[in-house]
Design a protein around this nucleic acid. Sequence first.
DNA 1: CACACTTACGATATTCGTAAGGATT
DNA 2: AATCCTTACGAATATCGTAAGTGTG
Lengths: 294, 294
Amino acid sequence: MNPSIQQLRVFIAVAHSRSLAEASERVHLSQPAISIALRKLEENVGGALFARTSRQLVLTPEGDAFLPVAVRLLNDWNEAFEDLNDQFSKQRGKVTIAALPTLAAGLFPQVIRLFHEAYPRINLSLHDVLAEQINQMVREGRADLGLSVPPGDADDLTFEPVLEDSYVAVCPCGHPLLAQPAVAWGQLAAYPFIGINRLSSSRQDIDRIMQSVGERLDILCDARQIATVGRMVAAGLGISVLPSLSFRQIATDGIAHRPLVEPTIRRELGMILSRRHPPSAAASALCQLIRDHE
Amino acid sequence: MNPSIQQLRVFIAVAHSRSLAEASERVHLSQPAISIALRKLEENVGGALFARTSRQLVLTPEGDAFLPVAVRLLNDWNEAFEDLNDQFSKQRGKVTIAALPTLAAGLFPQVIRLFHEAYPRINLSLHDVLAEQINQMVREGRADLGLSVPPGDADDLTFEPVLEDSYVAVCPCGHPLLAQPAVAWGQLAAYPFIGINRLSSSRQDIDRIMQSVGERLDILCDARQIATVGRMVAAGLGISVLPSLSFRQIATDGIAHRPLVEPTIRRELGMILSRRHPPSAAASALCQLIRDHE
DNA sequence: CACACTTACGATATTCGTAAGGATT
DNA sequence: AATCCTTACGAATATCGTAAGTGTG
């Protein structure tokens, strides 16, 4: 009662070759199979697509008018499913990532390179934004994947830890704090401090910890870019605290770092996914690569 | 290995209702059938279209992107086959007829009315042209059907007789020939003659017959329109010969007719079809109606 | 008789519905 | 307990290939 894709393929092959025998080779079917498929199709549409003369087939006017429609139908069909298949076989696709600047610059270059080698035709789009925006983008489906600190109370987001980072004190060379193997958080209050963006997750961590040890930073100024913090410290304006991953990015002559202790803070970093928006195949592949990376 | 139309239907129904149970009602299938069809489709395309959470289904990004494509695919599919079905069920279509002017005006009005009553949505297009042009139009597929005299030596045309006509002598009232019950061809030569277009099949018939009886018409003039012939005869300019079908069309006061004998000619009229171009369903229906008409 | 399409028939695959089995609210 | 999805299984259907049949050049 219902025409099938296969019947459409048969019709097109027969119409183009005007012969069942030749069509059977194109479609990789036996000649009788072609004959029957064509007959079934004609029963389905309620009339003859071909006029059977003695030894050859001729398209009826209806068949002739239907042929281009059938070709378009089949092409659209194939194209649609090839597209879909490409996406699932990760030969095509797009992944949008929202990552903390620290991770965007720190973890990303290596991961991106590996991913691009594995799936060269998948497009990667990276947004380096702050933690709250990351949560929002993942929540709204504007990003497939977030790379950030745990999202806290958001029950529509999942967090999967990937690596742990720690905070380090960053000082200009020759600074007294560098004489120690490690620096206690409480000691930071004694020096001018170069802060990073108050909205950033690390800054909020830092403020919270200082509060918990009962001290207050002597903040000289805040910078939005980590590199700026590095240069200001190198210039001797003050000291700072950075996640060690961030420090690695700006490590240059003139500054040095010491681990921060009392308390020793582990900063958990990982992947954020939405519960409401399932990950695409490409995004899942990237997640798996990130998991396997460490 | 190959997705099916039914699987596409299921996918769309599930995507729109976000529930297998509800989709099963739309598609008129059992719930397990929906579940399996969806799973098969996902196997076919190589990835998940839905993310199965505890009790509800959520489209994956791939499924979400595919949904509008699937809808378009299915709509195109349905539309194409509905069109085709309409053509075969004669609910739509077009028939182009090439007919001799005699038949176009004589046979046609009744047949057209019957056909249009039976198949109101089929478009009829009529070309009243001469016999040679009819043959050419049918041969080239520009007309589905010819209504004419037998096409002679054309082996790519078929002729099916429908009715026979005879020739009549047409005279103004009071003309001496009207005194007889029938007129012999040989008697025509004695009076001024109003001819019809030399290229028309009836004229060629007439000339041939006159030659065979060894007489020559005294041709006053030729007219292209049969109505013109009628008026000229009525005006007393001369007599004429017309197929009786044609005479009926122009029968008015002032002219009368008598059958032509010696020889008694039967003019065969019928349908011309192409051997190379099979008739459309609509054209076949018209042919059948014409056959049944007499 | 060779060629091209059709029919016949048995084997395989797909699809469906009923019934039973989880899992979640 | 109720709801929803999944799995299991037997039946109906569809599709295919081999083989035999039909008709034309």
